[in-house]
């Protein structure tokens, strides 16, 4: 019991720091992340720059701190949209009868059959690159997963004695769904959200990496990785530190998410 606990607390600590960076980057550094300095290009870590500088002489530490917000916000926003949308779609599929279920489920299958990244590219290509389109694109890709979990949960709850009992008290169907089905179905869906948050952050970094995320010069971890690529032979740090930031964030989120999922699974059985 002790080892997973340590992991959980470390994960929570990392998440707290990242959240603080995203909310109040000014608390972590006084340096302007976008201030270029031609006299200090590709400086190695140490001296006045903790983590060194990038190809434009910008302070890497400041850019990572300021990059937390866009990097995490796209992923989080996409998960939130997918969670809400997916739950609605899933409940609709489970509650609106066999025909609606067939139509909705097959549509979800279609979305799931297209490779995720390709679909995001498609959405972004249609709507034009940027933070909000990236968020929408990622939400579209992950919505079917949420919808499927929500649908399965609702179907398994539908036959429960307490749901039947609620109909017996004279509630209408929407009332029963709101009072008993949805609250009890939400646990597994929320657990899925925490687990997929990590994947979404990686995906949003990938989008920025290929230039479909926030426009430059916005500090964003994926975009920073992309910018460092040409200079990798000269300097490892502009690639290593943003990469480490992504890895650390995803590790922390996944650890905490898995723990939440286990808790939910354990309590519903």
């Amino acid at each position: 019991m002790t080892r997973p606990r340590i992991g959980l607390w470390l994960g929570l600590a990392v998440l707290a720091v990242l959240a603080a960076m995203a909310a109040f980057p000014g608390l972590f550094t006084g340096v302007d992340p976008d201030a270029a300095n031609v006299n200090a290009l590709l400086r190695p870590p140490g001296g006045g720059h903790w983590l060194g500088t990038d190809q434009n002489g910008r302070d890497l530490y400041a850019r990572i701190v300021y990059g937390a917000r866009p990097s995490l916000l796209i992923g989080a926003g996409a998960v939130a949209l997918a969670l809400v949308g997916g739950t609605l779609v899933g409940v609709a599929a489970a509650q609106l009868g066999r025909v609606a279920d067939q139509i909705i489920s097959r549509l979800l299958d279609v979305v799931l059959s297209v490779p995720g990244l390709l679909l995001v590219f498609l959405v972004v290509a249609v709507l034009g690159p940027g933070s909000s389109t990236a968020t929408i694109g990622l939400a579209v890709v992950s919505l079917p997963g949420f919808a499927r979990v929500a649908r399965a949960e609702v179907i398994s709850l539908r036959g429960r004695a307490y749901v039947e009992a609620a109909y017996g008290f004279g509630w209408s169907r929407p009332q029963v769904v709101l009072r008993h089905v949805l609250p009890n179905a939400l646990g597994p869906v929320l657990a899925l959200a925490t687990v997929s948050l990590g994947a979404m952050i990686v995906a949003s970094s990938s989008l920025s990496f290929v230039g479909l995320g926030p426009r430059p010069p916005t500090a964003e971890w994926g975009a920073m990785l992309a910018g460092s690529r040409e200079f990798l032979a000269l300097a490892w740090w502009p690639a290593a530190f943003p990469g480490a930031a992504i890895t650390l964030a995803v590790l922390a989120i996944t650890t905490v998410g898995r723990h939440l999922q286990r808790t939910v699974d354990g309590s519903t059985v």
Binding site: R160, A161, Y162, E164, A165, A166, G168, R179, H180, P183, N184
Partner: peptide, 13 residues
């Protein structure tokens, strides 16, 4: 209605 296993007929929350 009263069930054989009342626990199942109660919303766990």
């Amino acid at each position: 209605m009263i069930h054989q296993y009342p626990l199942g007929s109660f919303d766990p929350r």
